[in-house]
Design a protein around this nucleic acid. Sequence first.
DNA 1: GACATCAATATTGTTAACAAATTACCCGGC
DNA 2: GCCGGGTAATTTGTTAACAATATTGATGTC
Lengths: 231, 231
Amino acid sequence: MNTATKEKKTTPKKSKMDFQSFVSRIENMILTGKFKPRERLIEAALSEMFGVSRYTVRDAFKVLETKGLVTVTPFRGVVVSELSQQEVEEIFVIRAALEQVALRLSAQNSTAVDIKVLRKMVKKFEDAHRDDDFVVMVAADTNFHDYAFQMSRNKTLRRMINDLRNRCHIIRYSAWSSPTILEQVMEEHRLIVDAIEARDVAALNKLSERHISHGKEAYLLRLKAENALLR
Amino acid sequence: MNTATKEKKTTPKKSKMDFQSFVSRIENMILTGKFKPRERLIEAALSEMFGVSRYTVRDAFKVLETKGLVTVTPFRGVVVSELSQQEVEEIFVIRAALEQVALRLSAQNSTAVDIKVLRKMVKKFEDAHRDDDFVVMVAADTNFHDYAFQMSRNKTLRRMINDLRNRCHIIRYSAWSSPTILEQVMEEHRLIVDAIEARDVAALNKLSERHISHGKEAYLLRLKAENALLR
DNA sequence: GACATCAATATTGTTAACAAATTACCCGGC
DNA sequence: GCCGGGTAATTTGTTAACAATATTGATGTC
């Protein structure tokens, strides 16, 4: 059998970038703070930078707009979204509700393997914390939560939660400023895994609520600090 | 100077349709069943029909795609989304969580005026029911819920709920098939308003759960009937 | 008659050129 | 020095032509 047909599907052709991965790249640049809130994104520049057509860039903007990451104003282009405190509050209320449901479902569906994977991910976070590697920590945190939400076996829910989390992504304002918060986060991760293992819904609800509340505080704190600097 | 500059902002020019209203028109045609699930939407046809450019049509498709109303496949165009039973189940789980939160917030924020408005809306539904006017009933139902969610004063939440509700819009499969369900719906509406007025969160949670559960049953029933017909 | 192959058609994807709007800049007046 | 007006440059919005892909239909073979 010749391999050409098989390869066609597996290799997405380096010469022409996949639209979805192009969107992801811009998304990542926003999440990692390469593009900062209020910064204007210019079609021609991005088109040049990534070697795609202006048209593709516009399409990507539309997607990012509905995800809430950029704001489009007719004839004035797009800027990286900046969340008001009001919006942050709104989003965290929603996240609290959705993540509680997700963890409840995950607890119901959890297997021994899942628990092992989660514990491994918690450890990865802790290792990164020991090494003081902020970037790895953020990745580990994201992976931990995403795995936990994936366990809910509700794809729609998982995607909605991830979109909301991205809108208040940690690195965008480099939250987690204080070391105390970090210790709390790690402790809460451990407890969440325990509660999932025990399928203890009541405990999960409380933990989830608290965990998100801490996330919100850290985020708002950082947001205020940034704003104070800018004005 | 001439008055054109002032008018420019207030009158959106009838000759050129606003992008947002164009999207809404397609959206409505999907929701009201003018475009049916699995039906293919052709750029050129819509472009011709509404007198807008193909480009605008494509943009609209992108928006509708992220709202979950259409599905885009490269080089194969877009079709009106058809939800699998799995997806419907997923969506209703999420709706239950979000609508509970929304109603809880609404109860906290409710004023005497709000209650009056809600009661009026319930009555409008009941009147339409007496007149056997299905279309008005759907509109009244939508308005009732939207007003209740608006009262939560959480715009993000309100929009998310509305998007989810649209994905399982009543008319798309003409749910509410049985008269018994309709009686239940009306009774629940009355009870929900009462609970909001009394700010009785526990009651609201139960009512909300039940109301959505009924909605889900009606929808799934109709979905199955449609599928049985098609296959 | 069913199936595969290939051409014709229809539809989507991409690009480039052009129009419209905004922004930036310069200049004169006060 | 600062404000207003107007022009130039930048950037976005639109259109139309062209390329790539999928779908359809016809043809021929078994």
